[in-house]
C-alpha cells in the first residue's frame, strides 16, 4: 500500500485531476502538489499526487509496477 504510481495529468480542474498510468485512467488530487500542471507526470499515492517525476523514471517505475501488480493479483491480495 506504500506504492506510488507515476501517472500523467490528462485533465485538471482546481485540485481535481484525471491521471493516466499505462492507459489506466483514474482520479487524483493535486492538493499536496499545487505546482502540478496539465501534462506533468506525477507520482500518485493513495489518490494524491505527491511529487513531479521525470519521464525516464516514470517509464522504469511503470515496468516495476506491472510486475508488482501481477504479484498482487495472486489470490492472497485484495488491492490496496
Amino acid at each position: 500500500m506504500c506504492l506510488a504510481i507515476p501517472a500523467r495529468i490528462v485533465e485538471l480542474e482546481a485540485d481535481k485531476a484525471v491521471v493516466d498510468a499505462m492507459g489506466n485512467r483514474f482520479k487524483a488530487k493535486t492538493t499536496l502538489l499545487p505546482q502540478a500542471r496539465l501534462g506533468d507526470v506525477v507520482l500518485v499515492h493513495a489518490g494524491f499526487a505527491i511529487s513531479l517525476v521525470d519521464e525516464e523514471e516514470a517509464k522504469k517505475t511503470w515496468e516495476l509496477f506491472a510486475e508488482i501488480e501481477s504479484f498482487e493479483k495472486t489470490p492472497n491480495k485484495l488491492s490496496g
Binding site: M1, C2, A4, K29, T31, L32, H45, A46, G47, F48, I50
Partner: peptide
C-alpha cells in the same frame, strides 16, 4: 488510517 509519512498527508487532507 494506517501508513507511513507517504500516506499520512492524504489522511490529513
Amino acid at each position: 488510517a494506517v501508513g507511513f509519512e507517504t500516506t499520512a498527508p492524504a489522511t490529513a487532507v
